[in-house]
Amino acid sequence: MENRESRWAELFRRGNRGDGAAYRTFLTEVTPVLRRIAAARSPGLSAEIEDIVQEVLMAIHGKRHTWREGEPVLPWLYAIARYKAADAWRRRGRPSVPVEDLAEILADERSGDPSAARDLGQLLAGIDTRSAGIVRAIGIEGESAGEVGARYGMTEGAVRVAYHRAMARLRGLADGKEERE
C-alpha cells in the first residue's frame, strides 16, 4: 500500500509539474481503482460504471490543483472518487432529471411534446454556443465526433471531452432547474 501511495504521489506530482507521460501513467493506474469505487457506490448502474469512471477522471483532472505535494494522494483520490460517484448516483438515480437520456428527449421532441423540447432548448441556452452546438450535433443529429471536430477545427478527442463536459453542465443545470421548480 505504501508503495502505491508513494508511487502515485510521485507520478501525480510530476504530472502536475508538466510531465504528461507521468500524468498519463498515473491516470491509467488509478482507473481500475476508480472503477471499483464507482461500482461499489453505484448499485444497479453497471451499464454506466464506465461513464462514472470517466466523470471521476475528469474531476481528478479539473481539481488536481487542490492536491498539495506532500499530502497523501490516496485519501485525496478516494474523496474525489466517492464524491463524484455519489453525485452520479444521485443524479442518475432520480428518474425525473430531464436530460438524463438525450434519446428520450429527442423522441419527445419529435413526437411533439413541447415542454421537453422547450426544456432542452432552455438548458442549451444556458451553456456556451459551441458546447450547445456540439451537444446538438452529437446528441440530437447523431453526427460523429470526427465530423463535428472538422467543423469546429477541433480534434475528435477534444470534441468528445467537450461533449462530456457539456453534458455534465447540462445535468447540473437540469438539477438546479428542478430544484427551483
Binding site: 508538466g18 504528461g20 491509467t28 470517466q54 477522471l57 475528469m58 483532472h61 490543483h65 468528445r160 462530456h164
Partner: peptide
C-alpha cells in the same frame, strides 16, 4: 468514448493551476 482515449486527452494538458484557492 473509451476511457483510455479520455486519459490520453487529459494527459495532453498535465500542468495544474498554481496559486490556489
Amino acid at each position: 468514448m473509451k476511457t483510455e482515449d479520455l486519459i490520453s486527452q487529459l494527459a495532453g494538458e498535465p500542468v495544474a493551476a498554481q496559486g490556489g484557492v
